[in-house]
Amino acid sequence: MMADAFLDIADLSIVLRSDRAHRLLRSVDLHVNPGEVRGLVGESGAGKSMIGKTIFDILPRAVEAVEGAVTLGGTDLLALSSNARRREIAAAAALIPQDPLTALNPVRRIEGQITDRLTAILGFSKKAARDRALTLLEEVHINDPERVLRSYPHQLSGGMRQRVLIAAAFAAEPKLIVADEPTTALDVTVQKQILRLIAEMQAHHGTALLFVTHDLGVVAKICQNVTVLFGGKVVEDTDVKGLFAHPAHPYTAALINATPRYDRPDQSLLPVPADVIEATRAEIAKADAEWLSQRGQTLKAAS
């Protein structure tokens, strides 16, 4: 299973540059097979976006990957020069970002922002790229694609912008799409439409999807497998049925109890108990201590 994963993150640790003993991601393993829809779940600050940023080589300056491998379609990304890496990533994967308000460049028309990758990386002619953009906008159910192509981002609503970003993500037929909480910034009524749209586009194109969310309900609806992250550590990696039937980690079990269930609407919701969180933190602290004792010398010397 690991061997034919399209995205394979192995043993990834990310630290703060200012304090290299402080890990934001703790030996994370994560893989996504071709065509698979995998949920990545965790509370705010768990490190979900960090994983996405590592894949796309857009980590903030304050942090650094100190350990681990990221393999995309059989290519070890970290072994490539940064130029080769960005071309490889652009051709194989795309990101649907969290905030459609800032993810589009305010001073550029929509057309260029959808066709960028086609013309720059895949060598499409301007005309061919435009035709492709029109088709994509129709696929994401935008009524007047010609007009939208000519518009600037501020002339579109939040939902329209997210549709545009979805179209842009699918433009170059990537093998993998990472959707980082793509509906959080949207109006509740629009959220469902966008969610349905992403699922629909994924099925239509057969793209592998890493869906980042903090909502297990959404995971139950659209994902096959799920990875649960707590404090930068993977606490659960299973298929969705197994997750709800017999969660392996107490934190996951507590998380399930804290999530509204569509199949059991009368069940009362319980907050994640403090002792579960304490126990999970202790587990992480223990793992950190081990990790540090193995690499402490070099890390401490640098910090």
């Binding site: 080589d57 960005r86 795309a94 990101l95 800032t102 589009l104 720059a120």
Partner: peptide
């Protein structure tokens, strides 16, 4: 710091 810069990097621009 705005996301559109990240978007452009993800799209493969130098």
């Amino acid at each position: 710091k705005l996301d559109y810069v990240d978007s452009a990097r993800v799209a493969g621009f130098s």
